[in-house]
Design a protein around this nucleic acid. Structure first.
Lengths: 127, 127
DNA sequence: CCTTGACCTTACATCTACTGGAACCTTTAT
DNA sequence: ATAAAGGTTCCAGTAGATGTAAGGTCAAGG
């Protein structure tokens, strides 16, 4: 399978697939023309990576998860720990964003949004 | 005022203040020794920037907001538009993160987290 | 006067996770 | 034979800083 087939099947851009090879997440073979040749195993890995990235895992987390995925004698506790840490970071981010949202909503609401210069948003920023 | 005083007063790292100068957000004077010399106006601008960044505005948004802040004949509608756009982006991000959170919470809950290899998290990623 | 340490300067590298583009090679279809 | 469609590598750029190295400056103490 060539890269564009893999791109289509996994939903990942070819560029991203090349990048994942560059950073050592996958290691497709090469044909004698120099083209990458992908087997089903690579396809599965890439789908795995795509899904993990969708869930917001960092590339380093993905690397760890992939290693655990391939290790038949893994402990599910290790996987769970990675996911739990990540979940916590997500929760922190949501909390941050919600604070921003609350403030911004308030400010946007209180601003007349007309052609006059007076603006509660700028007043808040300059406070 | 030297940069470390400003850093302390604004809560911004000195490095960040230099960076903001580099990208043209502020333009402190220089003493004959080459040191940056900050006036109160710079301090206010930096505080403004710090606050705007805390609310998640991009640097480019900050540039726009700062320009509006300094423009006495601004229309509050312009400020409001920037804030509203940003609010919308925040809402989108929260939605994304909440989707991740829901999935991750479910997966973390359903994983035993023991020393056995069986793991619903990996099964989901590999699905 | 000299040294020490704190503070300042610039310049360059690094980080995350790609993405865009140029220059060039290979395959496939006409 | 040629042109389009695919593949390749390599380099640069994105956002928003942050780390580090090499060096200039300043105030205090001996």
């Amino acid at each position: 399978m060539n890269i564009s087939d893999v791109a289509e099947k996994t939903g990942l851009p070819a560029k991203t697939i090349r990048y994942y090879e560059e950073i050592g997440l996958i290691a497709p073979h090469r044909g004698q023309n120099g083209y990458r040749v992908f087997a089903d195993a690579h396809l599965h890995k890439l789908a795995f990576l795509g899904r993990a990235r969708t869930l917001g895992f960092s590339i380093e987390d993905c690397r760890t998860l992939l290693a655990l995925y391939e290790d038949d004698s893994r402990a599910s506790a290790d996987v769970r720990a990675v996911a739990k840490d990540h979940l916590e970071r997500i929760n922190e981010k949501i909390a941050e964003f919600e604070e921003m949202r609350a403030t911004l909503q308030h400010l946007v609401q209180s601003c007349a949004g007309d052609d006059r210069p007076d603006c509660p948003i700028l007043r808040d920023l300059a406070r």
